[in-house]
């Protein structure tokens, strides 16, 4: 590598914002503005505490139908906390207390009428580290359907095949459906976990840093998959990889110390952020 090339690379570093900008996902329609569908999730003045730690402060955010929404921000800013609030998984931590509303298709998820089982059936989740059950690949994917009372082998077979195809892993596992899911590579396990989430035909899929434990090739596969899935599902994906947010998402929310600093079209966040902190973060000056 020559000196001048090195210098160019350095320049790229400081101007990462614009550099990424060239590969930011572009709006499909002619006007250039991404049109939003029905709101799926609306957070209204939402606050969350872990005991005394005010982890989420006055969050107001709307995620819309069939969009890929990315949540970015430095470590510890509340990304995981927020995405886990959306399906109330955050309540598994006993010291959690919340205030304000989160509406899922118009209904407050903290309302007594809403059971967590019902909410989580509609709002599926993929976790940071692949977490298949210690069961066969087939039983992993069929788990959700069985939990919801589907017993017929024929229907389960169809669900398993459709979900594994949907998660782009059918060809790799179709000959070993009865083998333990732990025999797969990390990237394959994560796609089985995505298939498992698809199998209950959710409305929304939440993903908390789904590729952070994976190698670059598996990461690319999952990113492609996320794009594919957005045709049929609304997706919220947490990432602290900014290139990933830029590549896959339509809208991006920037979280910082428990606040939403900026929420806009992904191209706007990366190409002309309104807030100085957003600009600093997406250009790699901190994080």
């Amino acid at each position: 590598m020559t000196d001048s090339q090195l210098k160019e690379d350095k320049n790229m570093g400081t101007e990462m914002g614009t550099e990424i900008g060239t590969e930011v996902k572009q709006a499909d329609n002619a006007s250039g503005i991404i049109e939003s569908g029905q709101p799926v999730f609306q957070a209204k003045d939402f606050n969350l505490w872990y005991a005394d730690n005010h982890a989420l402060q006055n969050i107001n955010l709307t995620f819309s139908e069939n969009e890929i929404s990315a949540i970015i921000g430095p470590s510890g800013c509340g990304k995981s906390t927020f995405i886990k609030a959306l399906n109330r998984m955050v309540e598994l931590v006993p010291i959690v207390r919340t205030e304000g509303h989160i509406l899922y298709r118009g209904d407050n998820i903290f309302d007594k009428k809403m059971t967590v089982e019902e909410l989580r059936t509609k709002v599926g989740m993929v976790f940071q580290n692949p977490n298949p059950f210690p069961k066969s690949i087939y039983d992993n994917v069929a788990y959700g359907a069985r939990v919801h009372g589907i017993k017929k082998k024929k229907i389960l077979d169809q669900i398993v095949e459709k979900s594994l195809r949907g998660a782009a892993i059918w060809d790799e596992v179709k000959d070993r459906l009865n083998q333990n899911a732990y025999g797969l590579s990390g990237g394959q396990q994560q796609r089985v976990c995505i298939a498992r989430a698809l199998a209950i035909e959710p409305d929304v899929i939440l993903m908390d840093e789904p590729t952070s434990a994976l190698d670059p090739i598996s990461t690319t596969k999952i990113e492609d998959l996320i794009q594919q899935l957005s045709k049929d599902y609304s997706i919220v994906v947490v990432t602290h990889n900014m290139q990933q947010a830029a590549r896959v998402s339509d809208k991006t929310a920037f979280f910082y110390q428990g606040y939403v600093v900026e929420h806009d079209d992904t191209s706007a966040i990366f190409e002309n952020p309104k807030d100085k902190r957003t600009e600093d973060y997406v250009s790699g000056r901190f994080g």
């Binding site: 399906n87 580290n129 977490n131 959700g144 939990v147 976990c193 209950i200």
Partner: peptide
């Protein structure tokens, strides 16, 4: 591991389904 529990309740399984299955 708790991650496996989370996966199960995260799919809308009840506590008892998670425990028994």
């Amino acid at each position: 591991p708790s991650t496996v529990r989370e996966a199960s309740v995260g799919m809308g399984a009840t506590k008892w389904q998670t425990v028994s299955r």
